[in-house]
Design a protein around this nucleic acid. Structure first.
Lengths: 233, 233
DNA sequence: CAGACCAATCTGGTTAACCAGTTATAATTA
DNA sequence: TAATTATAACTGGTTAACCAGATTGGTCTG
């Protein structure tokens, strides 16, 4: 059989096509929660695609919690009904690549909440880690060096201290994309780093004394100086 | 070679082991952004694991934006520095499975923001979709039927109308897990659905007249009745 | 006739072989 | 000798073959 090398977007497209065919099949066969999907081999034949393509599509639907694969047994429809299934697949198919604006918007939202939770829940262990990240940042920023990475680690330490694993995961997902975009647009070159030292210290202090409201305010200040140059991105 | 069937968690563990070995390798070889990782075959031999395991680990790091694979060329270190790389990998390795409490906490946070954005940015198209979901919900709830799915679709329609693709994605990720947990604990059996009709209508109306503050308040009311039975989960 | 048992089949997961660009190296030429 | 071309090795992606547990249908036994 002929092998073709596909670009990322081409691969995405045929994967979406398979997902939509799986949806049609589930509707046609009137599959309900717990029912078994046809085997991967059968699907690959029916759709005239490779089995690995089918596997990828199934794994994506598994990631969103719509299917469950059991080894040596089969792939099963998850415990959400047909209406929700159709709606969610529709949304997944229409999902766009996240733009920078939406990333920043979501980051601010998550961090303002995370810092409040961190102020309430931080353990001594959390404080130690945050202080460590804070000092690494200060050290670099004082010497005028680029400290984007150390900045990032301080913020991730806060997310961890929030005690909310879901928010922690989401922060991990969006952070590298933001960093990349930042460096593309040279956001952090303009001597912002030095101002950041005091702002970080303020945030840390508020978390240490467990003052959620103050911590949130200080984080807001930090973001204001960070993103005031970003309007034209 | 002997083939072993692994459980999900066992697989997760050896994957984390590989990730930590990759991190050690990057540190030892002092790899910088843009540098090429050893080939998948070489890594699988060096770590004494299968190539597919290595591929999975790499794909996970790719998901978090730490590596970039280029077909017929190699896998490269992403454009974030060594310090950030180490910190992020550390976080990824320590990442826990999200608990129900953190899921709900994050859902409320995301939806309260999404509904405000939706009130500001909703298009006519968005209104149509939300109204459709709303009517489907009312229809079922009036008859006393279970309407968890229709409820979910209404909330996802709001997330879409927020115009923030990142938040939309995150909502899609957490929603099915919440639904499953809900049905496990029979949260929605107690005649909540009927009250929900008016609450949904209020939210819709606020979005239609583009009043962000009101929309947020109405969403808060909705969540209050929803989650008042959840404290003991 | 009902229930236990067994073999053939089917399943997702795993491994190995293969493909076609990419890249590094060596041979060639101006 | 330096630039250029040709060739061989290497790479991630793809396909096909294989594995062992799960399932199923029929058979045998009580």
């Amino acid at each position: 059989m002929k092998i073709e090398i596909l670009t990322r977007t081409e691969n995405q497209e045929i994967q979406n096509e398979i997902i939509s065919k799986i949806r049609d099949l589930m509707n046609y066969k009137n599959l309900e929660p717990g029912d078994k999907l046809p085997s991967e081999r059968m699907l690959s034949e029916k759709f005239s695609v490779s089995r690995s393509n089918v596997r990828e599509a199934i794994q994506k639907l598994e990631f969103y919690g719509l299917l469950v694969s059991k080894p040596q047994s089969g792939t099963f429809v998850a415990d959400i009904g047909q209406v929700a299934m159709n709606g969610m697949i529709e949304d997944i198919l229409r999902l766009k690549e996240p733009d920078f604006k939406s990333l920043v918007e979501t980051r601010i939202l998550l961090e303002l909440k995370a810092v409040r939770l961190a102020a309430q829940r931080r353990t001594e262990q959390d404080l130690i880690q945050m202080k460590k990240a804070l000092e690494a940042y200060s050290e670099k920023a004082k010497n005028g060096e680029d400290a984007v990475q150390e900045d990032l680690l301080f913020h991730l330490a806060i997310a961890k201290a929030s005690g909310n694993s879901t928010m922690n995961t989401f922060m991990l997902i969006i952070t590298p994309e933001i960093i990349t975009k930042f460096e593309e647009h040279h956001v952090c070159d303009k001597g912002l780093a030095f101002m950041g030292i005091q702002e970080h210290q303020d945030i840390y202090d508020a978390i240490e004394v467990q003052d959620p409201q103050l911590a949130k305010e200080k984080m807001k200040v930090h973001f204001k100086t960070l993103y005031q140059y970003c309007y034209n991105i």
